[in-house]
Design a binder for these strands. Structure first.
Lengths: 167, 167
DNA sequence: ACCTGAACACCGTTCAAGT
DNA sequence: ACCTGAACACCGTTCAAGT
């Protein structure tokens, strides 16, 4: 039997193993051994499945409680989220699309907002997060595959963060 | 007769009028009244057509020459690029994909780099640019259609820029 | 050099019909 | 309540064949 939860879990597995292009309704249906049309009883459309996948992705996120140093908190959380976008294949592209269309991923903003001094900073970090992840998609793919080119991507992101938050 | 230039021009018109989803090889071919396969003589694949489109988009860009105030230059150019991403439908999504896959849009980085004090700042602004544009896709669509909600998007971007560049 | 036609292997979504 | 089968209207890419 199919639950909404199992659905997004299978979607995430497909994403990790074969990339976003292979997360199709037909492919997911095949994984469950049901007809494609069966999925539409559990989920409105493909976009809402993608939304559920992002929500799932951000669920098991080990967020530390706020301390009295918001700068450190902010950097820590931003790096945590960035790492999450890094370590799953095509997670950046997926999250960008879901956030853009507003079909999920609200937790991402909440995690930042909780330790952010103001809305402008939250916005800037969100933009930096998805922009940087998107632009470094290729290098990230290599990084995720193990074979790699020093932690350039992570370092660059950290530097951009410092520039933004100042001291 | 079909030139690579005409190809991307038609692609951009399709983009502006119907959105990225409607920029398909088959749709472009129909516009030229040729078979789909004909396009593959002029262009390697779809991704390279999209790359050509972004290059075209960034060609007619009225970039002011550098002054002795790099902060002002940087802000001016970033806002110019942001406006460009704003005023064509789905231009943000298109540019993001093209930059991510490295199939075009190199001029964008050059425009920033020419007045940027260092690579870190260039990277950060590029990320901010495409991240902010992507995240505000919906609001941007409304903004492009005339009907709208104050210049919120532009203001927010400007604030993020200020935060990044400091004073 | 440039284009056609046909094929291949896919898509997302809907909807009557079944149990 | 949950699923099937079939259809609709699409995709990108390749490739032999034509002019």
């Amino acid at each position: 039997m199919i639950t909404r939860d199992e659905l997004s879990r299978v979607g995430l597995r497909l994403l990790a193993d074969h990339g976003l292009a292979d997360v199709s309704m037909r492919r997911v249906a095949k994984e469950f051994d049901v007809a494609v049309s069966a999925l539409y009883w559990h989920v409105k459309d493909k976009q809402s499945l993608l939304g559920a996948m992002v929500d799932q992705l951000l669920t098991d996120l080990n967020v530390a409680p706020p301390t009295d140093n918001w700068r450190a908190d902010l950097i820590g959380r931003a790096e945590l989220l960035y790492a999450k976008l890094l370590d799953t294949r095509d997670a950046a592209e997926l999250t960008a699309s879901v956030l853009a269309l507003g079909t999920g991923g609200t937790r991402m903003r909440e995690v930042i907002d909780e330790v952010s001094p103001n809305t402008v900073t939250t916005d800037a970090i969100m933009s930096l997060l998805i922009g940087h992840a998107t632009l470094n998609q290729q290098r990230m793919q290599a990084q995720a595959l193990g074979i790699d080119v020093a932690p350039t991507t992570t370092t660059t992101f950290r530097q951009a963060l410092d520039l933004l938050i100042g001291d």
